[in-house]
C-alpha cells in the first residue's frame, strides 16, 4: 500500500476535529478568563492606588498565581481539555506551561530540574517576544528617522 492511498483511508476513518464546538468553547473559556482579569483589575483600581494602565501588572501577576494553584491541584489541564486555546492563549496558559514543567522536573532537583526545565515550554514565547519587540522597535525607529512615520 502506498502512502497516498493510506493517507486517504486514515483521513476517512480518523475522528474529525469538532471545529465549531472547539471555537465556541475557546471563546467562552478565553472570554471568561479575561472577564475574571477585568474584575481583578477593577479590584486593584478601586481599593489600591492603581490606574487603568498600571493595574495590568498586578492583574497579570494575580492571574499567574491563580493558574499556579489550579495547575498544582491538577485542575488546569481539565480547563484546557475543555477550552483548548481559550485556556492556552491567556497569560494563565503561560503560567500553566511554566508551573507544570517546574512541578514535573522537581525530581531532578531545584537547580538541574526546576531551574533547567522551567522554561522548556514557555521559553520560546519569551524568545520570540523579545526578538520581535527589538525588530519592531528598530524598524519603527528607522521609519521615524526617514520621516515616514512619527512616534
Amino acid at each position: 500500500m502506498d502512502e497516498k492511498k493510506f493517507a486517504k483511508i486514515e483521513q476517512q476513518l480518523s475522528p474529525k476535529t469538532p471545529l465549531g464546538l472547539n471555537i465556541v468553547k475557546a471563546f467562552l473559556t478565553g472570554g471568561t478568563i479575561c472577564l475574571i482579569g477585568q474584575f481583578i483589575a477593577m479590584f486593584y483600581m478601586t481599593f489600591f492606588d492603581f490606574t487603568e494602565r498600571t493595574a495590568s501588572n498586578p492583574t497579570v501577576a494575580t492571574m499567574v498565581f491563580l493558574a499556579m494553584v489550579l495547575t498544582g491541584l491538577g485542575q488546569y489541564k481539565k480547563i484546557a481539555q475543555f477550552g483548548g486555546a481559550g485556556a492556552a492563549v491567556p497569560i494563565t496558559g503561560f503560567s500553566n506551561a511554566v508551573v507544570s514543567a517546574s512541578i514535573e522536573h522537581k525530581s531532578e532537583g531545584y537547580v538541574l530540574g526546576v531551574g533547567g526545565n522551567m522554561f522548556k515550554l514557555a521559553g520560546s514565547v519569551i524568545l520570540f517576544g523579545v526578538v520581535s519587540a527589538f525588530t519592531v522597535a528598530l524598524i519603527k525607529t528607522i521609519l521615524v528617522k526617514f520621516g515616514v512615520v512619527s512616534w
Binding site: F27, G31, C34
Partner: peptide, 30 residues
C-alpha cells in the same frame, strides 16, 4: 473584555485546529 479576550482565543483555536500548529508555535505567533 469578555468578547475581545474570547475572540483572541478563537484565533488561537483556529491556529490549533485549522493551521495544525502546535501550542508552542501558536503562542509564539500570537
Amino acid at each position: 473584555a469578555f468578547v475581545v479576550g474570547g475572540l483572541i482565543s478563537v484565533v488561537g483555536q483556529l491556529l490549533f485546529d485549522v493551521a495544525k500548529l502546535t501550542p508552542a508555535h501558536t503562542l509564539c505567533l500570537l
